[in-house]
Amino acid sequence: MSDPKSLGLLAQFETPADIMHAAMAVRDAGFSKWDVFTPFPIHGMDDAMALPSSKVGFFTFVGGVTGFFSGMGMIWFMNKFDYPLVVGGKPLFTPLFAFPVSYELTILLSAFGTLFGLALLNRLPKLNNPLFSSERFKRATNDKFFVYVETADPKFSAVETRALLATLGASAVEEIHDTEA
């Protein structure tokens, strides 16, 4: 038990109501380095874990602004600055005919910004995760619900935390070890 470094305790729960209840209790116990794992997003879990509102929107905004102005800038540069060419007596540049393309680029780069933000905030891709060593944890993407409390949490105690998780109705509690060690 003590040879490979212990990283935390993984507790399995059977229903969304149980995991919600457990998350609130762990939150109220004052833990900070812990997480909940569910096969689908559970409504109200963000509050139950006291998570702040997601910051993905910031990345979307940056992407969108970049897209819009690069569209306008590109068209101005190509059709008015670098090689002015009168076509059909129309102006060399106006934001009007440049709008559809800039609009599409706004959406394109917003989408890329959103995904970039999602990956960055979630620290993904991350293909090695000590939790993957648990056979039980495979059902986190199927039909079971988990709470994981890290030993790195200042409030963590191998005995008391295990007891807390057990009283919350965990159907199993398992210790997660550092697979690298």
Partner: peptide
């Protein structure tokens, strides 16, 4: 799957990103 675990901290960002998309 990029190492997806079903973490709720991830779902929180994921749901926001999905809504934005």
């Amino acid at each position: 799957s990029l190492g997806w675990t079903g973490s709720n901290r991830h779902w929180s960002n994921y749901e926001k990103a999905y809504l934005i998309l």
